[in-house]
Write a protein that binds this DNA or RNA. Structure first.
Lengths: 220, 220
DNA sequence: GTCTATAGTCTGATAGAC
DNA sequence: GTCTATCAGACTATAGAC
């Protein structure tokens, strides 16, 4: 597939249409339908651009039903952000448990898990990244803590690689920001029609991360 | 400066407070004050989270005055998006004109210009990247065309580097997405207190881009 | 160009029946 | 848990004076 054919020429900020939620959410029940509807609309239109009636209309319930499950519209967002951040952290940590303690292998595992998570749950990732600001400071505290934990996983791997003399990292913060950015943006442009499988993207971006920390390309 | 000390632990989606606009905007006139006020608020709260009263209150004018200068709130956003996208394109193209036609030099020049533009006008970049979806499809057409032009500058440099045998690019789209992502995200985390100058960030990220396309580190 | 005042609609959230 | 009906306030945008 050519480059231009798969470039996003719409003004939508997310390409994918996948609305699935990672946790066991019963779509036959009102709570689950509300969460999925809100996820879709927040990803598409933003929190401020989505009304309670929009959410309830899409979920097929009345506003009263939403308020029976969530104290406010803001709490619906908070729940989505919690699910999104915790799912990513769970996957990143799990990826590290699955592999040997070699820094290169661990770096690649983190990047691959990041990519796979964002390809599988793009809307959740977009909302997590683009709508956190809509939450009050108090309600965002616990979510920010999870984000910090996820970031620390990458920092730890980078620092270990430097200690071993395996990585060349001149600036830890900038290296962290660059590698995170590559993975984060996947959620915004990935779609089933982009011509690449999540596996291919994960492979490629893991190699990019390795090259950023000064590793030579893998043979083969 | 340590990594943790400069990591953003607030839920704000932009760290910087710089609201300057690149074009000659007269802040003594209502139109300019409205644009700057809207830029600040859209960056902070999003388009949907900002009311006309918010904008006018911050600009020190009445809503009627805003409607004398712009047909609607949406047109204020459209003007900011136009300014932001055109300024970035202007800088990217200008960066290419300033350097010799060597692919490595041109790739580094593009990344450096991207970084500098986002450090200088972070709010404009955040709004351009995060609020385009709030625009109607019709009004976003011309803006998307400018974005496509900017992207094409990078694609052309990458393709030239591959033709010369200087770059190793296995997947053009993924390389484009990765290098763009690194620069784009700068607008969200850069602040004067991050402990790095725009020059340092530009140097580092230009080197990352070079390593992504398979170039060896510059000597020295 | 800027103001006061307001139209008409939509907003988040709630009362109370079942 | 879900409904109908509705509150009080905020919303975008406009009318008309100066």
């Amino acid at each position: 597939m050519s480059v231009s054919a798969s470039r996003n020429v719409s003004n939508r900020r997310i390409v994918a249409r996948t609305t699935e939620l990672p946790e066991q959410v019963d779509l036959r029940r009102a709570r689950g339908r509300i969460l999925v509807a809100a996820l879709h609309l927040f990803a598409d239109q933003g929190y401020g651009g989505t009304s309670v009636r929009d959410i309830c209309g899409r979920a097929g319930v009345q506003p009263t039903t939403m308020y029976a499950h969530f104290p406010s519209k803001e709490d619906v967002l908070a729940e989505l952000l919690r699910i999104g951040h915790e799912e990513l952290y769970r996957r990143l940590r799990s990826a590290l448990l699955d592999v040997e303690p070699d820094p290169r292998v661990r770096l690649e595992a983190l990047v691959r898990a990041h990519v796979h998570s964002h390809c599988e749950f793009p809307m959740l990732a977009v909302v997590a990244n683009a709508e956190l600001h809509a939450l009050s400071e108090h309600k965002s505290e616990s979510i920010l803590a999870v984000r910090q934990q996820s970031e620390s996983l990458l920092v730890d791997v980078l620092e270990r690689g430097v200690q071993c003399g395996q990585f060349k990292v001149a600036d830890m913060l900038l290296t962290l920001r660059a590698i995170s950015a590559i993975g984060t943006r996947v959620a915004f442009w990935y779609g089933p029609d982009c011509g690449r499988t999540p596996e291919q993207i994960a492979d490629t971006f893991a190699a990019f991360a390795a090259s950023i920390v000064g590793l030579p390309p893998r043979s083969g």
